[in-house]
Design a protein around this nucleic acid. Structure first.
Ligand SMILES: [Mn+2]
Ligand SMILES: [Mn+2]
Ligand SMILES: [Zn+2]
Ligand SMILES: [Zn+2]
Lengths: 138, 138
DNA sequence: TTCTTGACTTGGACTGAGTCCAATGTAGGA
DNA sequence: TCCTACATTGGACTCAGTCCAAGTCAAGAA
């Protein structure tokens, strides 16, 4: 994650305490936090950080391609640091748990020419829905 | 569409003018309107209809399985009367045009056992992204 | 090391989408 | 025709996110 910060500094990013804690909070696997969750965790380390800065920083990380936005429900957008390896999402409909998954094959090839309506395709997003082990046994 | 209204009346639905115009507005193919678009079109026929009633009616149609909710962007939910035949969506990233598409195969079978994390799967939603013919030639 | 300055951060006002509710109206059975 | 449980209404409210003017500060220049 500090290699991330170095990379961004090389791209002209000013390294502030606020940006550092946001990057730290986003470290890990299967991380899909909302902006307010990021803010709460960042504020635990740096109490004066504002919501506006969290939104600014997340937006920059997204446009720099270091974080992707994922919407798993009709509520808040989630921020995912696993931007380097393409993947899809498996969501528990009861507790909201999100796992990164890699289906076999390229989703784009499943859409036959006759179903493309002349579009130029650029990508596909898949959300698998189900119940996680602990929610299934309730 | 009036067969829909009959079916719902058989299920104890009171047939009001408001519900009738909401159902009429949702008729057609490749229809994916936001609640406010439904409200605007319904109000053209029945000026006194309220936003609250449009939301109530759409919510009922969704829980009765007659309409599905689709979120194609980070903005408003869209309401899709094509609830009878399972399908996926192809979205133009520029103008927002949405087409119903049917990829080959069952998306669920593309997720190998080792990538299911013990979940009980219930469905998969795919959004294909691209540019429609007129946006691609700009 | 200090200076300078444009980039960064801040709190709070604002927006858009959606929910909730108490008061009012009405579909449809008796 | 009457009754009433169900439906509709406007407006207040919530939640996620955006915007802004004022204040702060990282980091290059000297
Ligand atoms: Mn992910
Ligand atoms: Mn559709
Ligand atoms: Zn669960
Ligand atoms: Zn287009």
């Amino acid at each position: 994650m500090s290699d991330l910060l170095e990379r961004l500094r090389g791209r002209g990013w000013r390294l502030t305490a606020q940006r550092r804690v946001v990057a730290e909070v986003l470290d890990g696997d299967h991380v899909h936090l909302t902006a307010d969750e990021v803010h709460a965790r960042a504020a635990a380390r740096l109490p004066e950080i504002s919501r506006a800065t969290v939104y600014n920083t997340l937006g920059e990380l997204v446009s720099l391609g270091e974080v992707i936005e994922v919407s798993t429900d009709r509520r808040a957008m989630r921020y995912d640091p696993n931007a380097h390896r393409p993947h899809q999402h498996l969501v528990c409909g009861k507790c909201g748990l999100v796992r990164d998954v890699r289906p076999v094959g390229d989703p784009l090839t499943d859409l036959p020419e006759g179903e493309r309506f002349g579009f130029t395709l650029s990508g596909a997003e898949i959300t698998y829905h189900g119940l996680c082990p602990s929610c299934a046994s309730d």
